[in-house]
């Protein structure tokens, strides 16, 4: 199959996936939350007033019309008005998504930046105490739930030593012109330390172990034996020859991880009060703000699919050995 044909096919697939997800989402919500205006009762609204709101949100229409309306609006990027915020959902969601992505990407990059060389080094010292400890620590952080390590980290660094901020993205109040201005500050970095570290520690295990195991396989290959025979220093063999050849599976894993990163880590956002999209979904469904919950989830899914697509395309470009299957 030609490269172009492959691209078109992948894009079509992505759109198809998105449509299926949107449909599932729509019916899930209608099944689980037949009357989303129920929560407004606490505010003292009576039945008539709620009926008015239902009409305003198109909830009185037959289901299939609601579905078409929903799809049509979604295609136009029109996700309606948040129930509780009375603001267009899209405005709220994009910024939250960006916040989630910066946390996740920073953490993943950190995890791989540490995990890959460390894994290579462990393979070199295989069987040693360092190797066992390395595996143990990597797996340990992979096994500990992030909300727990996060809580412990807050206790130690935030409450106990009071050296790191434990909630939010910035010290309040602050003035920022747009999102980048908010991110490109020392204060932001300071706030990001704990959450990024906790997520990174969780992700550390997979590059570490994959790298270590692939390296072990690579050691057996002929070209390594030859390098050894040439009497090259072990360090050079390790980093110049073996590591380069062992990178492929790690990169594959990285691609998958990044692809799913938009899903975020809801618990980390909750524990660290990080204003991300996952927490927004949690709040939205809790407050029955179904337009917001629906849109947040759909945008999240769209982003996951797009990321997967991009990673795939990038991957095929970088490594021609991957067939356009």
């Amino acid at each position: 199959m030609s490269r172009r044909g492959y691209l078109i096919k992948r894009v079509l697939q992505a759109i198809f996936s998105l449509w299926i997800i949107a449909t599932i989402l729509f019916f899930l919500f209608r099944m689980g939350l037949p009357d989303p205006t129920a929560a407004l009762v606490t505010e003292g609204l009576n039945a008539e007033q709620r009926a008015a709101i239902r009409a305003q949100f198109g909830l009185e229409e037959p289901l299939w019309r609601q579905y078409l309306l929903f799809l049509g609006n979604a295609v136009q990027g029109e996700f309606g008005t948040s129930f509780s915020y009375r603001a267009p959902v899209a405005d709220i969601v994009w910024e939250r998504l960006a916040n989630t992505m910066i946390l996740m990407l920073a953490a993943i990059v950190l995890a791989y930046a540490i995990g890959v060389p460390l894994g290579a080094w462990l393979s070199w010292r295989r069987g040693s105490r360092a190797d066992t400890t390395g595996i143990f620590v990597g797996l340990m952080f992979r096994s500990a739930p992030m909300f727990w390590t996060g809580m412990i980290a807050i206790l130690i660094f935030g409450v106990g030593l009071s050296i790191l901020p434990t909630s939010g993205m910035r010290t309040l109040p602050y003035d920022a012109d747009g999102w980048w201005d908010k991110i490109l500050t020392l204060d932001f970095l300071w706030h990001a330390v704990l959450p990024v570290l906790i997520v990174a520690l969780y992700y550390l295990g997979s590059p570490l172990l994959i790298m270590r195991n692939t390296m072990l396989e690579v050691y057996g290959e002929d070209f390594i034996e030859m390098a050894r025979a040439k009497g090259l220093p072990e360090r050079d063999i390790l980093y110049k020859h073996a590591a380069r050849n062992a990178l492929l599976p790690v990169v594959t894993q990285l691609a998958v991880t990044i692809g799913l990163a938009a899903g975020g880590q809801v618990v980390v956002e909750v524990v660290f009060s990080w204003p991300g999209l996952g927490r927004e979904i949690l709040n939205a469904v809790r407050t029955s703000d179904f337009p917001l919950a629906q849109a947040s989830f759909l945008i999240m899914a769209a982003f996951v699919i797009t990321l997967n697509l991009l990673v795939d395309i990038l991957y095929t470009t970088l490594d021609p050995r991957v067939s356009f299957q």
């Binding site: 992505a14 996936s17 998105l18 997800i21 692809g259 799913l260 938009a262 899903g263 975020g264 880590q265 809801v266 618990v267 999209l277 996952g278 979904i281 947040s296 989830f297 999240m300 899914a301 996951v304 699919i305 997967n308």
Partner: peptide, 8 residues
Amino acid sequence: YGIPFEPF
């Protein structure tokens, strides 16, 4: 694969 696990 397009569905984020935790939010779902």
